[in-house]
């Protein structure tokens, strides 16, 4: 029983990380209609910068985090600039070229990480080491922090989207970019902010998870996959969709670790994909969205 609770909690906290990557993915997609595959790479870069600054250079964790998040945000804005280099008001973005560019970026990040940090796995410092005992279940403090961060960020973003001008502008862009620009919204700037913000969130996810899932140079692709799955499972809703999708994904994955031997590990890889296919057959629009958006 305690074991089950422990696994479920770990699943939720892990799922929270997936949700954060997925949220970044959906923020960018809703504001600019670009599928940013580099979303996982921000987690990679953010995580590595954090653990290097904190472990090797001995910076305090909060400062290392701040620097990592800022760097990722800059990287995010840079991504937007690169993707929209040739966009003009009368010449819209080519979505194929945009997605390919972000894929190139994934590999550039991977290559850079390989050059700097090599092919070994690295472990980040925990915000608060140790475990706590909840109803007999042993829970790592870090995973509590992960879950708290996920919920706080989700609520914060939801507030941003519904109660601030920036959020309204983002939603206007999501609905109809042309109308948004006729209302005076600088759609380019809103897009850049969305990229920067989601990169920062991605980086934070990478840092939070680094003490638990060790990082290596290929982890960007892994994060990207989980983010995409969370996003597709939940449906095209800015925050709630990827959040629910990510949490479910985390639960399902960790649930299979209860099984003995390699079967669990294998199922952990296959079942999310099977789940996605089931969801898309049953509810093509995702779990949360009631009406299909064309």
């Amino acid at each position: 029983m305690e074991h089950l609770f422990q696994v479920l909690f770990t699943g939720l906290s892990q799922g929270g990380i997936y949700a954060l990557v997925g949220i970044g993915f959906s923020l960018v997609n809703m504001s600019t209609r670009v599928l940013n595959l580099a979303q996982g790479s921000y987690a990679l870069i953010g995580g590595f910068v954090f653990l290097t600054l904190a472990s090797r250079f001995g910076l305090p964790a909060w400062l290392a985090m701040l620097i990592g998040v800022a760097l990722a945000a800059i990287l995010g804005v840079l991504t937007e600039r690169i993707v929209t280099l040739r966009v003009r008001p009368w010449r819209p973005i080519s979505h194929d070229m945009a997605i390919l560019t972000t894929l190139a970026l994934v590999v550039v990040c991977e290559g850079t990480a390989f050059l700097i940090w090599g092919s070994d796995t690295h472990r980040g410092p925990a915000l608060q080491p140790g475990v706590v005992n909840v109803f007999g279940a042993i829970i790592i403090r870090q995973s509590i922090w992960m879950l708290v961060a996920t919920l706080v960020i989700s609520l914060g973003l939801q507030f941003l989207l519904t109660h601030t001008w920036l959020g309204r502008a983002m939603r206007a862009c999501a609905q109809n970019p042309l109308t948004a620009s006729l209302l005076g919204v600088n759609t380019r700037r809103v897009g850049a902010i969305a990229f920067g913000l989601s990169a920062a969130i991605g980086a934070l996810a990478g840092m939070l998870v680094s003490p638990i899932t060790w990082l290596d140079y290929q982890i960007g692709g892994e994060f990207m996959l989980k983010g995409i799955l969370a996003y597709l499972l939940g449906g095209e809703m800015a925050v709630a969709g990827p959040l629910v999708g990510g949490l479910i994904l985390g639960l399902v994955e960790n649930g299979f670790l209860l099984l003995p031997g390699t079967v669990g590990g294998l199922l952990k890889q296959v079942v999310p994909m099977a789940l996605l296919i089931l969801v898309l057959v049953w509810r093509p629009q995702g779990l949360l969205v009631t009406r299909r958006q064309a």
Binding site: R168, A169, R171, Q175, A180
Partner: peptide
């Protein structure tokens, strides 16, 4: 008319005052 179809009436109006 180009409504921001998924946003509420009030949000549409508010966005009119975006500038």
């Amino acid at each position: 008319r180009q409504m921001l179809a998924g946003l509420s009436v009030e949000e549409n109006l508010l966005l009119g005052g975006y500038v």
